[in-house]
Amino acid sequence: MSLRPLRKKHHVLYYSHHGRPPRPVHIVHRFAMPIVVPLLLVLGSAFIATGYFVVPSSYAAEGARLLAALGASLLRLLIAFVLSLLVGIPLGLWAERSRRAESILLPVFDVLESMPVLAFFPVIILFFLHAGLLEGAAIFIIFFSMVWSIAFSVVGGLKQIPADVKAVGKIFGLTRWQRFREILLPALFPATLTGSILALAAGWNIVIVSEALHAYSPHAAQAHDLFGLGSIIVAASVGGQNALLVSAMLLLVITIALVNLFIWQPLLAHAERFKFE
C-alpha cells in the first residue's frame, strides 16, 4: 500500500503536544503507531516465550469468552475510575483549599500513593471475603491504585489556574457553585484528563492481579477468582495454556490501543482549548 497522502477527507487531526498546531496525519500512520507496533511487540515476545506466533484456530471458540472477560474487566475498571474521580477531585480541591490543609494532606497522599497496595491485598481480600463482596476487593484495589493520580493532578491543575482568573469569579459576582461549575471544573479538565490517563494505566496494571484472588490470599480458593481478562491471563500462564495467554494479551493490547485512539486522543485534543496560555 502506498504511503502517498490520502485525499483530504482521509486525513485526521491527531493530538499534538501543547504549543504545536494540530497537524493532519496519514491514516496508516495513525493506526500503525498505537496498534500495529505494540501488537508486533507482543507477538514477537510471545513467540520467543511460547513458540506461538499466531493464535491457533482451536482458540477461536474462546473468542466469546475472552470478549465477555474483557467486558467484566472493563466494567471493574470503569467503576473504580468513576469512584476515583468522585473521591480524587474533592480530595485535590480540599488539599488546595488552604496552605494548612495542603501541608497536612499532601504528605498523607504521598505516603498512600507510595504504599505497595498488593502488600495489603491479602488483608483487603479477607475483609471483603468476610463481607461476601469479593468483587469489592478487586474494585477497591483498582480504585486505590487510581485515586492518587487524580488527586495529585487536581492539586497541580489548581495551581496552574492564574490568580486573575480565580479573581474573575469573585469580582463578577459568581456564587461559589457558579465559580466551581463555570471556572474551576473546566480549568481543571486538562490536568484531570492527564491524571485519568495515568490512573487508567495504573488500573490496567492492577486489574490483571486483582481478579486472581487465590494467588494473594490463603483464605481464597481458585473458585474465588473473579471472571475477567486478568484471571484468564494468570490462569493461562500458570496452566501453560500459551495460546490462550497470547490471545488474551493481544485482546488486552488492542483494547488499550483503541481506548487511547478513540477516547484519550480526542479528549486530549479537546483539552487544548481549556488550557491557559
Binding site: P162, V165, A167, V168, I171, F189, F274, E277
Partner: peptide, 14 residues
C-alpha cells in the same frame, strides 16, 4: 458595584 480589568484580560479560554 465594582468590576475589574486585568493585565492579561483573564478571559476563560474555553
Amino acid at each position: 458595584r465594582t468590576r475589574m480589568i486585568f493585565q492579561n484580560a483573564a478571559l476563560l479560554p474555553w
